[in-house]
Write a protein that binds this DNA or RNA. Sequence first.
DNA 1: GGATGTGAAGTCGTTCACAGCT
DNA 2: AGCTGTGAACGACTTCACATCC
Lengths: 213, 213
Amino acid sequence: MKYSKVPEATIRRLSRYSRCLEEMEEKEEKVVSSAQLANKCMVNSAQVRKDLAYFGEFGIRGVGYYVKDLLNDIKRILGLNKEWRMAVIGMGNLGSALLSYKDFLKQNYKIVAAFDIVPPKVIGRVSEKLGKPVEVLHINRIREVAKERRIDIGIIATPASEAQGVANLLVEAGVRGILNFAPAQITTPEGFVVKDVFFTTVLDNLAYLLSNS
Amino acid sequence: MKYSKVPEATIRRLSRYSRCLEEMEEKEEKVVSSAQLANKCMVNSAQVRKDLAYFGEFGIRGVGYYVKDLLNDIKRILGLNKEWRMAVIGMGNLGSALLSYKDFLKQNYKIVAAFDIVPPKVIGRVSEKLGKPVEVLHINRIREVAKERRIDIGIIATPASEAQGVANLLVEAGVRGILNFAPAQITTPEGFVVKDVFFTTVLDNLAYLLSNS
DNA sequence: GGATGTGAAGTCGTTCACAGCT
DNA sequence: AGCTGTGAACGACTTCACATCC
């Protein structure tokens, strides 16, 4: 186990390795070398080994890695051995779509609450394949409900103008993780973590690359 | 004007600067220093100047940058002085939400077509605030329609299993830019550009950071 | 005076190359 | 014999610090 700080890029790659390993596990492949995994994930094989070396030794020299074990180890490293309970705030098109986003279920991500500023009412959205509809609650109940339902992560899907306000409510409610879809810079106190998903930033990147090639 | 290759991070930051400058322009602020802009965007002021230096000289020593001019220059650099015509493929919850995603309109991004594998039918979705509904077409018409409507960018919002197939169709249709929301590794020939938007990778990142703090 | 633009220094991440196990 | 784990070399990006110019 190493104690230098881990590059963010390493964490992103671990996430990718985990997806590849899941595919391999489905195909009942038992063992994989860093070169094979690297090839599948389009990275350098030394990179795979270095990424893993931040967290320990997982391979067998001369052999490679056991697919199943490595997958488990990576999931444990990422913290995916626990269920992550999430709330979506903002029931526009995007927020509603996220409620029924199926890929969340495959990992241990679960949406357990939904909020908006419209007066509380039930919208017949379903957050689990055959599960119960998630009732949309008024935003001023975040604090109460966050405790009650043990929410770990708040997903902000409001207009940009409301994002910081919602973030403040989440902070106040003790929700330490925020996934922000609103195109706005959000700030939080020390100890809270915000990750942004900005479609238009990625599009801008595409536009730049297409314009210069 | 410099000719070294520009870091991708620089492009991402230019996108952020542009958003900040837009806010400043709305507030009728005329001039901004690299320190002020850096502060607002949470980066180092030398970083701002270095990022801009890749593309030329835009400031006035002792003064700063004219907000309006700098915004225009950055938009030109990013290729946002043209309209980008996009198609969404996959009309699940996410694809449908993207059709009416309002932040696309503020920039020069416009969705001009929508595809799915269901038999062609009109779904009453609206892609512009007061605009015409976008008719959902059968996926096998991509090639024909891509030419007709001069599509620059294809947005993949299908299940992971279909992503590569759709990408192949887009490549065949000559659509050089792909924004991929499906959690799957996509490959394309030289000359095409793929950018991924993986929610769960970002969530994994959050999970890691929350687990280790 | 004051902020830009930029060489140089510093920091961080990636890749190489090989010693060390199995 | 083969593949991992890792120190060292390399390369890339960021920050510093100051000469330059308005």
